[in-house]
Design a protein around this nucleic acid. Sequence first.
DNA 1: ATACAAACTTGTAATGATTACAAATTAGGT
DNA 2: ACCTAATTTGTAATCATTACAAGTTTGTAT
Lengths: 140, 140
Amino acid sequence: MRFENLEKELKNRNINLSYQRLKILEYLAHNQCHPTVDQIFINIQKSITTLSKTTVYNTLKKLVEEGLVRVINIEDNETRYDIVTEDHGHFKCENCKTIFDFNVNLDSFSINGLDNFRILDKNIYFKGICPECAQVNEKN
Amino acid sequence: MRFENLEKELKNRNINLSYQRLKILEYLAHNQCHPTVDQIFINIQKSITTLSKTTVYNTLKKLVEEGLVRVINIEDNETRYDIVTEDHGHFKCENCKTIFDFNVNLDSFSINGLDNFRILDKNIYFKGICPECAQVNEKN
DNA sequence: ATACAAACTTGTAATGATTACAAATTAGGT
DNA sequence: ACCTAATTTGTAATCATTACAAGTTTGTAT
Ligand SMILES: [Mn+2]
Ligand SMILES: [Mn+2]
Ligand SMILES: [Zn+2]
Ligand SMILES: [Zn+2]
């Protein structure tokens, strides 16, 4: 597991250490459910009562810039954050809103129309109904 | 080409015809550049001076619900709309901001971890530098 | 340990996209 | 032509995000 030492990870990326930054990174490492800014803010505020939402925004911006965290834009009204930066896909259940990870080899499939394009970032996401919600629906 | 008769297309989907709706659909058909709400609004306002932005939002919502138009969420602060609803990928140039289409067979590649998920919608987008911008950069 | 500048955090205000809502207008059916 | 339902419009409200300035903390040099 990456992030056995989050402090070191920050220093490696020339991000100065601060208590807030460490707590935010810890939260992301322990809650890999693709949280929103609000979820992160509300939870960490429990232990850092003076925390400002601006700090959460600032820190996330920095973590994204340095490649420690990736942004997930599925809905237009909620940005989510993922500490897993390796290529993988996301499935959002339209019923329970959970976001699931799935494995996909983005290099394996054929693409037409991108010759000479320099690809820096690949994203794939699906929407639908997760198995649990599908099962509940059947019973109705 | 689909949409040789946009009026008929609307009726087929039980969307009542209105001058505004037709103009918005026409705009999307003739400007397949994935426009934002603002672009649509500003351009159509030239011919319908009384147009309200709320109408643009309402209409787009309806067109999306009825499957005539698809939403594109790449950046978190700008929703774009695409009249091409067939599966295809999008590439956004981080320099000139243009969004390019590319062909991709979303069924062809292997996915692990989505057994028993009902997939209703597939999205794929890349970011990077388009050939034109890459060439300009080289010269510097 | 002290001092100082740079970096970070905080709170508040501003911005910008989207939605809510009610009144005015228009469309479709009789 | 008339009536009802659907649509459009303008304004206000909402909500996420950013801007900004003041206060606090950190890192470094003395
Ligand atoms: Mn993920
Ligand atoms: Mn497209
Ligand atoms: Zn579900
Ligand atoms: Zn470009």
